[in-house]
Simulated assay, not measured.
Amino acid sequence: MAIDDIILLLHPALAVAVVFPLIGMVLNRAWLTRTRRLQSAAGGKSKIAPVVGPEHLQLGRWLTGLVTGLSLIGMAHPISSNIINQTLWTKEPFKVAFIGLMFAATIATLVLLYRAKPWYWRAIFATLSSLGIIILGAQDGIFRRDNEWFISHFYYGIAATVLMIISLAIVPEIYRDRSQTWRRIHIALNCFATLLFLGQGLTGTRDLLEIPLSWQKPHIYRCDFEQQTCPDANSQLPLTSPPLV
């Protein structure tokens, strides 16, 4: 495998080795926290240790950062490859500088979101970091499946990342709200995010089968992706690019 192929595998490798196990831990602590709270509200004495609540909060904060970082890593490779292949630093230097600033701004606003206390600053930084993820996702070179957005690994990932950022931003409101409205919103958002993560596991595996290794590209990209046919091995058909949608 070439260096480019190893870098390409960094995103799924981190997802499998770090993010998905952490999702399981967060869900486990969430279930225990809710069970303990319901048992206590019913007047009984729960056998679940009180520490599960703080653990759920801490693991959830880690999960938001890791999911956002993983999204940035997943987008950085195709964006940088497109910049190099198209020599954009000479053709469109402003665009290249803008993309670099967007990566830096997204990371900076996420860090500031972790530190922000007033609700308005949390809302601002959550909005800015989410916009950064969305804008970077709109850049050329990313495998998006725009014509199949409802089964797209890219769109599932963007949606899950934004939901994680929102969940992080509303955490203080959950502890202040006596009506439990923000807690219900938090639960609903993260239940939907869990479904998106499950979808990412399926769509990510599918996309790995469709994105060829670097040495395979000259042969694979001669295929007709719409008709799902490939030329004969001795054919000299011109090289074409695969659809990015």
Rank of each mutant, 00 (worst) to 15 (best):
G65P: 10
G43R: 08
P50Y: 12
L8Q: 10
V171K: 14
T181E: 06
V26D: 00
L202S: 12
F125Q: 02
L9S: 11
I23E: 04
H186I: 06
F154Q: 03
L195N: 05
H56F: 15
K95R: 04
Y175C: 13
L168R: 01
D4T: 06
E148S: 08
T87D: 14
A17G: 08
M1F: 07
N147P: 04
P93E: 03
D224Q: 04
S241D: 13
Q180F: 10
A138V: 04
V16A: 15
V245M: 13
S130Q: 01
R178D: 12
W121G: 02
S46W: 07
A76K: 02
I124F: 10
V19W: 15
A126K: 08
S241Y: 13
I107M: 06
A169E: 12
L32K: 13
L237K: 14
L72N: 04
R206Y: 13
L9P: 06
H56S: 12
P12S: 01
I134F: 05
V162E: 03
L244V: 07
V96H: 00
E92L: 11
I7R: 05
Q180E: 10
L32T: 03
R184D: 04
P231H: 06
A159Y: 01
N82R: 12
T240L: 06
S152Y: 15
V162F: 11
V162H: 10
F150L: 05
D140Y: 05
C191V: 06
